[in-house]
Design a protein around this nucleic acid. Sequence first.
DNA 1: TCGTAAATGATACTGATTCTCACTACTGTT
DNA 2: AACAGTAGTGAGAATCAGTATCATTTACGA
Lengths: 147, 147
Amino acid sequence: MSLNELDDEVAALLGDADQRYTSSRRRLISALQAGGGPLTITQIVATDSSLPQSTVYRNLTILEEAGVVTRIVTSDDFARYELAEKLTGHHHHLICTACGDVLDFSLDVGIEATLDSALAIAAAAAGFTADSHRLDLLGTCRNCVEA
Amino acid sequence: MSLNELDDEVAALLGDADQRYTSSRRRLISALQAGGGPLTITQIVATDSSLPQSTVYRNLTILEEAGVVTRIVTSDDFARYELAEKLTGHHHHLICTACGDVLDFSLDVGIEATLDSALAIAAAAAGFTADSHRLDLLGTCRNCVEA
DNA sequence: TCGTAAATGATACTGATTCTCACTACTGTT
DNA sequence: AACAGTAGTGAGAATCAGTATCATTTACGA
């Protein structure tokens, strides 16, 4: 998705939620797109220091409610945000247990399909209504292995 | 695993970590086993009110370092703990996005194997050293669907 | 039994996140 | 183009799950 298409899509989603696509929110989206993976609030503010922390927190909450971004929680103390799968496509995360960094990766479509049907069966057995799945790989990233 | 076998295993793991298997820790393990899924600190204290909160926090940290329990973080504000997979076997979680509750489920061994090999390939491609995977199903539990 | 080290638990503290609120910037109307 | 009304902003205060402190208690080994 090009930056323009992304912008249009974000504008539409915000419009549906009766929210404006303000300059702060544009800069936030732009920082997230440049990030190449989920970012912490600290990373976002470091990327674009014109964004005050309170604005980042507030707008990420609004963007999440509008379905534009997704909040990712790992085991460390910092929440991370990335563009929603609606915008970037379905993917998973490599979570480094040493430094906390998170990278994206995708699986073969066939495997996703196999998984989805197995999960649907398991969910039904528990009387659970499934919305989505979340698959993360925990380990050590290239940088931390070398260190 | 019976309660006695579990006790022996926990005692061994704590011994390896130069930690004692004290009465507080026994009660903690017992509460976690009775829980049938990951529990929050609040739930643990509610289950066994003789356990002070600070002791629960401290001992869960120690038990996690000893490999006896695992800390689970979902999107709500409360960490949850469950017995480590070493003790209960590999499994996954159904996470209710309405009430935050977490239930256990398992997948067919064949599907786990397929998944593991696909993940190994993806990890290698990213220069990532994989330790384990985490697969959760997000949705609405039976109670919340009815409500 | 004694001495030492570990565990306990009430309480104080920390820090990520959320809330508050006076101020600013839009948007649509006349 | 000025106006009124509404939404967004951002600095600082408040919140609260989780962690650290430390005097007291408990348990192990000699």
